[in-house]
Amino acid sequence: MASNVEDTTRTGTAEERMRPKRLAKRKNHHKWAYVFIAPFFLFFLLFNAYPMFYTIYLSFTDLAGWATEANFVGINNFVNLYNNQLFRRAISNTFILWTVNFLPQIVLAFLLSYWFTSRRLNLKAVGFFRAMFYLPNIITAASVAVIFSSLFSYPRGPVNQFLMGTGVVDTAFEFFRSVTATRLIVSFIQFWMWYGQTTIVLQAGIIGIDEDLFDAARVDGATDWQSFTKITMPLMKPITIYVLITSLIGGLQMFDIPYLLTGGGPNQSVETIITFIYKQAFTGGRNLNVSAAASVVLLVMTMVLSLLVFRSLKERSSKNIKRKKG
């Protein structure tokens, strides 16, 4: 018995001696974890946080041209922006271009995702069509701008040649001197480049819905369209919110196609917020203060609109749930 007691006391003391070593090893593991995540935070602070806060600082100064010293001017830059007709026009242009390209984009994306996931249609080569629809998103914006600039060029562009050859018009039409035509072309390019990605996101959301719900609906005699409107659409609200918010953010940051295609013309008809910011900062008088103030306004607009979209759709879904329970 005595030996057993001695053995247990020895093992107990041995375990107690090993505990500090184990704790030390765990602490070393924790240190390595901090080492591995440190690069992300360093890059974030250097390339995201610092530029953002420095831009906010510049928006309250008078730094412009080649000056190296900035003086605090309060909210004068924001007041000047409010009175700037070009900036207000850039805001309206941005929303017009986004609305014209997003509405058909979301409708077509839902329609394609419905076709691709329908069991009754059972379409073949869905993967091929999905890749083809996504292909325009891979092409660089500069290449797309060059292609469409050549297609709609005056007077011997392919579009003009086709319209005159079919008798639609008698003389060549200058597309990029027409405000309506230029806006429609830019909106179509944005729609053409992004509807494939939207389709893939929506299709992934539909595939994630439990198939038992659709099987039960078929047993009850529901058609594919009824299943889509009564089951798929309500359950797709989180994905729809994601698509809407990301598209809104991308629309507010629209820059490459309008700038590369026409530089914002004609008559600033496709001048967007980002093209305004770019021109203020890097052309002419290099008004860094005005550019920084416009960037802050864009940041606030993005945050507020995203929050409003999220809140409104979330409140509607909660009200519908309450009505069904009632």
Rank of each mutant, 00 (worst) to 15 (best):
N160K: 02
I273C: 04
T13Y: 11
P51L: 08
F162L: 15
R183K: 15
W194A: 08
Y259D: 11
K322A: 13
L299N: 03
F162P: 01
N267H: 07
S59G: 07
I189P: 06
Y134R: 01
Y278L: 02
G167T: 03
Y278K: 03
F228G: 00
D7N: 12
Y259H: 11
T283H: 08
I273V: 07
T272H: 03
Q161F: 10
S3A: 13
V159W: 01
T302F: 05
R89Q: 14
R130S: 15
V73P: 01
Y195G: 07
R120L: 10
A67V: 06
T68S: 08
N80S: 15
I75M: 15
L299D: 04
S118C: 09
V304P: 00
L121W: 06
D256M: 04
Y54W: 12
N160M: 07
N83S: 13
K27W: 14
T166C: 10
M164F: 06
A131C: 05
F176M: 11
T61F: 11
G157E: 00
E271Y: 07
L307W: 09
L63K: 10
T283S: 10
D224C: 05
F41W: 13
Y242C: 02
V201C: 10
Y278Q: 06
P136I: 06
L46Q: 07
F78D: 05
Q203Y: 04
R119M: 10
L244E: 06
M301H: 04
L252S: 03
F36Y: 14
A131W: 02
L313V: 04
Y154I: 07
F191R: 03
A294W: 00
R88F: 05
A294H: 02
G251F: 00
V159N: 06
L45M: 11
L121N: 06
